[in-house]
Design a protein around this nucleic acid. Structure first.
Lengths: 192, 192
DNA sequence: TCAAAAATGTTGGATAAGCAACACAGGAGA
DNA sequence: TCTCCTGTGTTGCTTATCCAACATTTTTGA
């Protein structure tokens, strides 16, 4: 529901190709040097596209990062079949697992994740989480506004994942999540 | 000399990309099914380009095969530094080795190399050989026309490679070439 | 043998990508 | 300070690609 697969398919093939070239180049550069050291020129040279073409798709490199994170995160959620779903404790558990996993991998894949990079990623991911949780809650036909509980849960989940992915010696993921799950579930369960 | 590297670089980036997409798709299809079973649609679908775009580059799939073989063969010759060169017995030996190698690999990489495929490839490769040998002979400033000796040698070399690549149990390549070399060398040596 | 389906080439008009040039902003170094 | 250099956005114009539609052939299979 968050992703519209047909939208992507009915896009002009040239647009699809260009975006994909940009994303691939950007991903490679992220593993090589920090986000702050990547210039638009770097990306366009690596992607073998014209610089003007880049600006036809993204206002600047920050928008590209946002798009990159969104794509990667949503693809991950799709893979775990969480996007077209509803609330349940099991689904919530899978979701938290997925976010922890994603964030941990993001940090290990990207060279020197710096402050700027982190906070941009955080905003993007929390937005998607908020949308997803709102969707879940609306599915269960609650009469109350979903905004508050979705916000609380989105922040809580991201906080857990951030804590997990930054821990020096990461605890066993499953155990960590099982311990944290009830705290988030109690906030959502009463609305769903 | 046979290849003009700058020509490829000053090409429109979109053209380079499209050709490369077509070649990659075609190569993959060749390993999967025989040339005769590959349609233009197959290629354009795999390459994710419009069918009309294909026809803007190649008149039909036979022209594509020609281009494909030329590219691959010339790249192979470039790699062995035979293209910008002159005649000498050692160079001739390397050349024969390269052709045998190329043809043998071509036959093992492509699914069911059929009659049509073979004769098209043969024509393309012999043309390139002819150009290369002519260039070699002209380098040595001979006064006599290079056409006859270049033709004889091109056919002889291709014949050797064809024989080699079709033999049931292929003899040791080096030994095979060393045995054949003098026969070709005697035809070229007197003109260079 | 015949009709349906699939592949081939071609066309005109729409659109994305490329290019060269520009003004501008920041940083490095003399 | 001044200049040089590199990166940023933007623009008008050109060109390659896309698309939908069409008439033909070729293949299929009933």
């Amino acid at each position: 529901m968050l992703i519209n697969p047909s939208e992507n398919e009915r896009l002009d093939p040239r647009v699809r190709r260009t975006r994909s070239l940009i994303l691939t180049a950007f991903e490679a550069l992220l593993t090589e040097k920090g986000f702050e050291f990547i210039s638009v020129q770097d990306v366009t040279e690596r992607a073998q596209i014209n610089r003007a073409t880049f600006y036809a798709h993204f206002p600047d490199k920050y928008a590209l990062l946002d798009y990159f994170i969104s794509q990667a995160f949503m693809r991950e959620m799709e893979k775990r079949t969480l996007s077209a779903c509803h609330y349940s404790p099991e689904n919530l558990r899978s979701l938290i697992l997925a976010v922890c996993d994603f964030l941990a991998r993001l940090h290990s894949d990207c060279a020197q994740p710096h402050q700027q990079f982190e906070s941009l990623a955080e905003g993007t991911i929390k937005n998607i989480l908020f949308e997803l949780l709102s969707y879940w809650l609306k599915q269960s036909g609650t009469k109350i506004s979903t905004e508050i509980p979705a916000t609380v849960a989105a922040w809580a989940i991201y906080g857990l994942a951030s804590y997990y992915s930054h821990s020096k010696k990461r605890p066993a993921l499953e155990k960590f999540v099982d311990e944290a799950l009830p705290l988030v579930a109690v906030n959502l369960g009463q609305f769903a």
